[in-house]
């Protein structure tokens, strides 16, 4: 089977996507520890969401599972939480990519914001670490702030590094 121009484009797009994914994962472990705090950028979630729009739902779910597993491996107390939640988010993002990834930066930001907020809500509830007022503050203050920051960073990445994070076929 001879390589066609379409196959070459697809391969290049996949390699760019892979490079962007690797860079985001490196940022998750190399940059995020430099800025600790309640409001932090979740590069791993951005990587999963950006990868999910390129992949089929099953592969996206597997990607989310692996990324979640790597995140959980460095936080054994919540082992399994990120794995489960990122699997579901990646699977959902892959299904919804046609709706939200319409090459619109604002919609992409909203997509990342919702994804991060859902992720924080799910992990907080699954871990059961907060109750009462603390839970409310975590879910309604810190989680939206983290989601907003993550969305802003995702939009910036999409604008500044468009070749890496551009959705395929656009």
């Amino acid at each position: 089977m001879r390589p066609t121009p379409g196959n070459n484009q697809g391969l290049a797009s996949s390699l760019r996507g892979l490079a962007g994914f690797v860079l985001l994962m490196l940022a998750q472990f190399g940059v995020r520890p430099l800025f600790p705090g309640r409001v932090a950028v979740d590069f791993a979630l951005i990587a999963v969401l950006f990868a999910a729009v390129r992949l089929k739902p099953g592969v996206a779910a597997l990607t989310g599972f692996l990324v979640g597993l790597s995140v959980d491996a460095l936080a054994p107390d919540s082992f399994g939480t990120s794995t489960l939640v990122l699997t579901l988010i990646a699977f959902g993002a892959s299904w919804l990519k046609a709706v939200f990834f319409a090459d619109h930066v604002g919609l992409t930001g909203l997509f990342v914001f919702v994804g991060k907020w859902v992720f924080d809500i799910a992990t907080t509830l699954l871990m059961g670490a907060a109750l009462g007022t603390s839970l409310a503050v975590t879910l309604l203050v810190w989680a939206p702030l983290s989601a907003a920051l993550t969305a802003v960073v995702a939009v910036l990445l999409l604008v500044l590094f468009r070749p890496l994070y551009r959705p395929p076929g656009r």
Binding site: K56, P57, G58, V59, A61, L62, G64, F65, G68, L69, D72, F79, G80, T81, T83, L84, T87, L88, F91, L126
Partner: peptide, 23 residues
Amino acid sequence: GDSRLDTGLVLVCLVLGVIALVS
């Protein structure tokens, strides 16, 4: 077939995730 594969992968990942969570 793809759909069944996706569903299967998701289910496997979810099951493994739940196992990791409750182990």
